[in-house]
């Protein structure tokens, strides 16, 4: 099997917007070092929606934050590169990356109850984007903010209200409105519906799908919910212990999961048709990012583990055009 050539792109595919190569990030504190990302490779094409799936702590949010260069002070990029639209993000000046944030790359955060500033109106929190990136004056920006609220299903006269006056679901809509305000090329949604209940979740997803179709935005959908990915995304990347271990179209990966971990995730979903007494769980605990297993990070939990898996770390192998996996079991 050929290894995936990282710069190669299928002829029928669109242009590459984001390319993350071998990205490694560690968080250092007085007590411990956390190896959050350990050589992440990721590609997002223009107009494409990619789902990034993995358990909590796998490194999904860190990947997104690194792309925006918003890592906290105790985090260090220990290797790799990030390219946005051909430019190296790590080499950009402070001013350049700031111009991209909110304008070209926008992010919707996970917890709507904490991701809005409680002492400013929702109108202001949207309007500021328009003032900074579109040069509008206060009046124009606030008017535009009202229109954006309408698009996400909130009455425009509510621009003068504070976050505390909205429910969780509505606050997330405000977050989305802020995210699409400048018509970004890439929208990063970090578990946008995790903190919401199922009915609201459906509404939000519908909204996002709608917007994506209309505006042709690239979408990086971070979630641990496979159902959302199957509904919303074209491609999926599975992350475990700071590495992408499987990547491909949603159709292909979900139908024929190659990595034992992915298989485990899919099997863990409750099946309404089959009679089940116990849910299928992946044995063992998720890898401790402070104390990673050697070789393939998944090897302690894998039933197909070999001696090679304990020592060597598998790279991504191409199974077909739409499917890549990092597992020695698929090497011939």
């Amino acid at each position: 099997m050929e290894e995936m050539k990282k710069t190669q792109v299928s002829s029928e595919e669109k242009e590459v917007l984001v390319e993350i190569k071998d990205l490694s990030v560690t968080y250092k504190s007085e007590r411990a070092t956390v190896y959050a990302l350990n050589g992440v490779n990721l590609v997002i094409h223009k107009g494409e929606s990619l789902g990034l799936v993995g358990e909590t702590g796998a490194g999904k949010t860190t990947t997104a934050i690194s792309l925006l260069r918003l890592l906290p002070r105790n985090a260090t990029i220990t290797g790799g590169s990030i390219y946005y639209d051909g430019e190296s993000v790590m080499d950009m000046t402070e001013k350049q990356i700031r111009q991209k944030r909110g304008d070209k790359i926008a992010m919707i955060f996970q917890n709507p109850l904490t991701s809005l500033n409680p002492v400013f109106t929702v109108g202001e929190q949207i309007a500021v984007l328009l003032r900074v990136h579109r040069g509008m004056n206060r009046r124009e920006a606030m008017k535009a903010a009202g229109e954006l609220l309408e698009q996400v299903g909130i009455a425009s006269y509510r621009t003068g209200d504070y976050p505390g006056q909205f429910s969780g679901g509505m606050r997330q809509r405000v977050g989305i409105a802020a995210g699409i305000a400048c018509n970004p090329e890439l929208l990063i949604a970090d578990e946008p519906t995790t903190a919401l209940d199922v009915t609201i979740q459906a509404q939000i997803l519908e909204l996002m799908a709608d917007l994506q179709k209309k505006r042709k935005t690239s979408l990086l959908m971070i979630t641990h919910n496979l159902g959302i990915i199957s509904e919303l995304c074209q491609k999926v990347a599975v992350m475990y212990a700071g590495r992408i271990i499987e990547y491909g179209t949603v159709k292909e990966v979900f139908a024929h999961p190659a990595h034992p971990y992915t298989r485990g995730l899919l099997e863990a979903l409750p099946n309404l048709e089959k009679k089940q007494e116990r849910l299928h769980a992946i044995p063992g605990l998720i890898a401790d990012s402070q104390n990673l297993p050697s070789g393939c990070h998944f090897h302690p939990r894998c039933e197909h583990c070999t001696k090679r898996c304990e020592k060597e770390r598998p790279e991504m192998i191409r199974l077909n055009d739409d499917h890549y996996v990092a597992c020695f079991a698929h090497e011939e």
């Binding site: 934050i65 918003l70 700031r98 909110g102 926008a106 904490t114 500033n117 002492v119 900074v132 977050g175």
Partner: peptide, 26 residues
């Protein structure tokens, strides 16, 4: 340390404005 501050930075607002206006008001 609050989430909304990271969200504010993510909007591409100048760090001084983030700290002196959006953070301090809290």
């Amino acid at each position: 340390h609050e989430d909304f501050i990271t969200a504010t930075y993510a909007k591409g607002i100048h760090p001084l404005v983030v700290r002196w206006k959006y953070a301090f008001k809290n």
